[in-house]
Design a protein around this nucleic acid. Structure first.
Lengths: 205, 205
DNA sequence: CTCCCATGTAGACGTCGTCTACATTGCGCG
DNA sequence: CGCGCAATGTAGACGACGTCTACATGGGAG
């Protein structure tokens, strides 16, 4: 119970607290509404304190984005590793892991797709993005080697395969296209979408 | 040649000039960098002048977004109307028109997908979005009536069909996923992506 | 021709990011 | 055990921004 909000001169874990609170603010109000001074107020530190941990606002967002890509990659891989050794079933599982994560983690996903974040990318962010891209691309290539869209180029097939969960998550999150989507229906919804990209109905036992 | 930059007291067409300049700024620097004061400077008017035409920054973006959805709808429909009377070929043409427009109009597309814009939507924007959605949905339903993915629900098929061009455009525009894409290769690239969603290779004459 | 109101100006206010000078304190080294 | 430095937090300043208000201008309807 470190519940006391009274702070000694040094916060002690301000960096982590900033990142956590930032995710909450983005979840509730969007990236645009995130301010360093607001975070400082929420955490009872002075308005300049965040600058000790992040050179500027973009740096904080970049850090958040790097975490997000890595989390998204983990969520994508997690289901694949539990799947049987069939490239189609594996990619289908990855797609479902990807889309489920993107829908359930609105704030982190919105940071990933926020154009202003990527503009000021550092090495860490670029590396995280590359890791994700390589992970998916390899799985896409494996399905094509197993007969999926043999006439397509790998580049196009890869872009298409990525575009579906990215686009679907974007549309689901878009305020003007909001569709009712209960937690109960999420799995079935995700499975139906991904089945259209990487069908496995005739493969499952 | 209305090249003289000297302005009489009244600009005369400030509203249109603001919208046009805003699109240029977004194209070059992104939505985040757009400021009303910057636009005023660029157009040699006082910092408060834009407020006579747009209640606030969001209102300007909302106007831009309404235009963008309508333009995107026109681009989507334009090719379809020149296509033969086959629902698959028609939807394929719409997809190519959609994706081509989204790639070629980076600034307007980025406004469309910007989360902060939709949050303050007015009736005009919502109506434009609805028109677009209805246009696509009808075309999707027509293909399903013609045997495309008969086992899927229309909601899922519609979301999937929309997600591909939305997601593909997003990925193409994403600074960290930038792929070389020359104007010459654009048509072939777009055609290949859309062929994966709405195949027509075995239908064309 | 005259007057009204749409349009533009000028200044003020509060917020933000960020810089700088200063305060505090945890921790490593003697 | 205690000293001193570097990490961390504070306080104030500056310029930019959005937006409000009071005022200025002039095009066009009557």
């Amino acid at each position: 119970m470190t519940g006391s909000t009274s702070r000694s001169y040094h916060h002690g874990a301000l960096r982590d607290a900033l990142l956590q609170r930032a995710a909450e603010v983005i979840e509730a109000q969007g990236v645009e509404r995130l301010t360093l001074r607001g975070l400082a107020r929420d955490l009872n530190v002075s308005h300049g304190a965040p600058n000790r941990h992040f050179a500027n606002r973009e740096a904080l967002l970049t850090t958040l984005a790097t975490d997000a890509w890595e989390q998204m990659r983990q969520a994508t891989l997690a289901r694949a590793e539990a799947a049987p050794d069939d490239s189609w079933i594996r990619l289908n599982a990855m797609g479902r892991g990807f889309l489920t994560w993107a829908i359930q983690n609105r704030s982190l996903f919105s940071v990933i797709v926020h154009p202003d974040v990527a503009r000021y990318a550092g090495e860490a962010l670029e590396a995280a993005v590359d890791r994700f891209q390589e992970t998916v691309r390899a799985a896409v290539a494996a399905t094509q080697a197993n007969g999926r869209h043999p006439q397509a180029t790998l580049d196009a097939l890869n872009l298409y395969t990525n575009a579906v969960p990215f686009g679907a998550a974007m549309l689901v999150h878009h305020p003007l296209l909001a569709r009712p989507l209960t937690d109960a229906s999420l799995d079935a919804f995700v499975a139906e979408i991904i089945e259209l990209v990487v069908p496995i109905a005739d493969r499952a036992g």
